[in-house]
Amino acid sequence: MTDVAIRSAKPNPKPSKIGDSLSLFLLVQPAGEKLWRRKYRVDGKEKKSSIGSYPVVGLAEARRRRDHTETLRNVRAIQSADFEKSQSVTAPVEPF
């Protein structure tokens, strides 16, 4: 995807997507609004998050935000897994 392709994207009667990479895409609304979105999965279910609107958020900034949110998501998953491990450890039982 390039900035020229984004600027030249025309609205259709239905919302259309222009894909970038690593789950980032631009949603072009019928009214002409262009919105950055990111797809991801949680427990096997597809979710979407908003990154911003074009031209307020350019291509480079949208990619940077996508990478940042992916990093945060990975850190939270690791922390959650560590927390679950610590909760599953049982304390030794003391004899009577």
Rank of each mutant, 00 (worst) to 15 (best):
F83L: 15
A31Y: 07
R73V: 01
F25M: 09
F96Q: 11
E70A: 15
A31Q: 11
R38D: 01
Q87L: 15
F25T: 04
V42S: 00
G58W: 01
R41Q: 07
A91G: 05
Y54D: 01
V4Y: 02
R76W: 11
S23V: 12
A91R: 13
I18G: 05
L59A: 06
G44P: 11
G32K: 06
S86W: 06
I6C: 02
K47Q: 11
K14H: 12
V57T: 07
G32M: 10
D67T: 05
N74H: 08
T2K: 06
R64S: 09
P11M: 08
S21T: 05
K39M: 13
Y54V: 00
K34E: 02
A9L: 07
W36E: 05
P13D: 13
F83M: 09
Y40F: 15
P92A: 08
N12L: 05
A91I: 12
V42E: 02
A77H: 10
Y40V: 09
P92S: 11
E70T: 13
E70I: 11
D67W: 07
E84R: 15
V75F: 04
E70Y: 12
L72M: 14
T69R: 05
G58Y: 00
E70V: 14
P92E: 11
P15N: 05
G19F: 14
A31L: 06
K17Q: 10
R7I: 02
A81V: 06
S49C: 08
N74P: 00
L26G: 03
R73L: 02
I78L: 14
E84L: 15
S88L: 14
